[in-house]
């Protein structure tokens, strides 16, 4: 039986929050991808128990794409045998549309991308790989709320399509206390409603933003 390095690495990452690379293999077998899909689906349903409103269905292709992206990004962090020009082709963007389903499914693995970029930056600030990964995070900004994203470049339109996703997004903004995002009118009203009269207890800085409006 062949070792399933891809599955092993993603499992380790999700369960122990550690990256363990076994060997430099960029190719992913069909059977392993299938098993990965099943694993991610199981993980998604475990997490979905805590999603507010109705839960969007699992999207396997998006989840798999995210897992592959994270896996390859980690591989490239350690073993860099490619030319700079090849990097974008190794890390393609997701072909399908961005919907609440794909965003939440991809987030299973994409949420680790900010840390990977931070590590790359610690090694070499001018690494080309950073320039390849950052646009991904800008597009899938639900996974990058805690990352320092250029706020004006974000496409917020799909966030408000789904009540559950909007609530999860706002929960994440409040959890990391991201003032820059909270200032967006779409989120500001929602955060205000969420915190209600308990702004002082939960997020004191947000009160200053509200005070500016008056």
């Amino acid at each position: 039986m062949k070792e399933q390095y891809f599955l092993k690495m993603i499992r380790q990452l999700r369960e122990k929050e550690e990256v363990m690379l076994y060997v430099n293999v960029l190719k992913i077998e069909e059977t392993e991808a299938k098993e990965m899909g099943a694993y991610l689906q199981e993980q998604y349903h475990l997490e979905a128990v805590g999603f507010p409103y109705t839960v969007p269905p699992f999207d396997e292709s998006a989840a798999l794409w995210a897992a592959k992206t994270v896996y390859i990004a980690c591989q490239l962090m350690l073993y860099r045998e490619h030319m700079e020009e090849d990097l974008p082709s190794l890390l393609p963007d997701y072909a399908g549309k961005i919907t609440p389903s794909t965003v939440l499914s991809a987030d299973l693995c994409l949420r680790f991308l900010p840390d990977i970029i931070k590590n790359l930056r610690d090694i070499d600030v001018e690494d080309v790989l950073i320039n390849v990964l950052e646009p991904l995070l800008i597009r899938w900004h639900y996974s990058g709320v805690r990352y320092n994203l250029p706020i004006e470049q974000l496409d917020i339109s799909w966030v408000t399509q789904n009540d559950g996703l909007l609530q999860l997004y706002v929960d994440r903004i409040i959890a990391v206390k991201k003032i820059a995002l909270a200032q967006k009118p779409v989120f500001k009203e929602h955060i205000k409603a969420n915190l209600g009269i308990f702004v002082d207890d939960y997020w004191y800085e947000f009160k200053n933003i509200l005070a500016l409006d008056e």
């Binding site: 609530q167 929960d171 409040i174 969420n194 915190l195 207890d201």
Partner: peptide, 10 residues
Amino acid sequence: ETAPAIRLQK
């Protein structure tokens, strides 16, 4: 079912 996570935190 529709509650913000922050309200449940404490």
